[in-house]
């Protein structure tokens, strides 16, 4: 924990960190690369924006080492919008995370979309006042991140592909894991904790409550309003949309439609109405081909 005595009370407590994620529930967090895109996202109804130098599909295309964004760009976005501003640091890059905290971003995404900085350890997120969100592909990975101090989770999916299949797989794997733990006897949970490589106390918490201890969003490959509604249907508490918006033909209209579809995910009439006339979605990529080329981002982190 990083409880500090602030001017008004204790800052950086677990309740304060996980609480902001609760306020984002049911919403859409959009990747943006400049103040202009951030304004478009805010005006579409995004509940937060993720500031990054290049959206994931561009990172994929350009290759090389992807790092934390230029502080200048992050500040420009903070000045442009009143909604929370998140930013990404590399996995295990303690100092990039410190820089983002110094910039007063509202959430740090320790993200597999950037090139990992440490092959053994993730950032010790308990030492920060700013909360962290992390990606996961299964329950054990999610609980490892939470034990390190993550205050919000998201599926990894496969960023920058416009292909929702991996996000679906990760969301279902996490919820299936939760159901398995919940139906296990107390003694079986010891074995599950070992098998999932997750702390026993968190496995027991999940067993008792039947959910993750923090809010869980979906990310990685969401490109259409129906994709966003599908992830909500599968139990996501909100969605991140990266390349899906600003790589499409009409970003403002698509951003708005994805926001509406996330709120009204269980009302097919609304999803149908907002999906009309959006012009082309981003071009999608086949996962098997990326895997064959060794380009999967979801295998980064452990």
């Amino acid at each position: 924990m990083s409880d500090n005595a602030g001017a008004n009370g204790a800052t950086g407590t677990d309740a304060v960190k996980a609480g902001l994620a609760r306020m984002l529930k049911g919403g859409v967090i959009m990747d943006v690369v400049d103040a202009e895109q951030a304004k478009i996202a805010e005006e579409a109804g995004a509940c937060a924006v993720m500031a990054l130098e290049r959206i994931p599909s561009e990172i994929r295309r350009v290759g090389g080492v992807a790092r934390m964004s230029d502080p200048e760009m992050i500040i420009g976005i903070q000045e442009a919008v009143s909604i929370p501003v998140m930013a990404k640091c590399r996995i295990g890059h303690h100092v990039e995370a410190q820089v983002l905290q110094a910039l007063e971003v509202d959430y740090i995404d320790e993200s597999e979309v950037l090139t990992p900085a440490d092959e053994a350890s993730h950032v010790d997120k308990r030492r920060f006042t700013i909360p962290f969100v992390c990606g996961a592909t299964n329950l054990g990975e999610a609980l490892r991140r939470i034990s390190e101090g993550a205050a919000m989770m998201r599926t990894k999916g496969e960023a920058g592909t416009g292909n929702v299949v991996e996000a679906v797989r990760h969301m279902k794997t996490i919820t299936q894991g939760i159901r398995r733990v919940a139906s296990a006897t107390p003694d079986e949970r010891f074995a599950i904790a070992k098998e999932m490589a997750a702390p026993l106390d968190l496995i027991e918490w999940v067993g008792e409550h039947g959910r993750l201890p923090v809010v869980n969003f979906s990310a990685g490959g969401i490109a259409t309003p129906a994709d966003a509604a599908l992830m909500m249907y599968l139990g996501a508490e909100g969605v991140f949309v990266g390349s899906g918006i600003f790589m499409s033909e009409d970003p403002p209209a698509r951003a708005r439609a994805i926001v509406e579809a996330t709120t009204h995910w269980d009302d097919p009439e609304v999803v149908a109405r907002v999906s009309r006339g959006l012009r082309e979605a981003m071009p999608g990529l086949e996962i098997a081909q990326i895997a064959a080329e060794g380009g999967l981002l979801q295998t980064r982190g452990w």
Partner: peptide, 10 residues
């Protein structure tokens, strides 16, 4: 009261 860095409980 400020951005998330200043969020608090009391």
């Amino acid at each position: 009261f400020g951005r998330q860095l200043a969020s608090f409980e009391a």
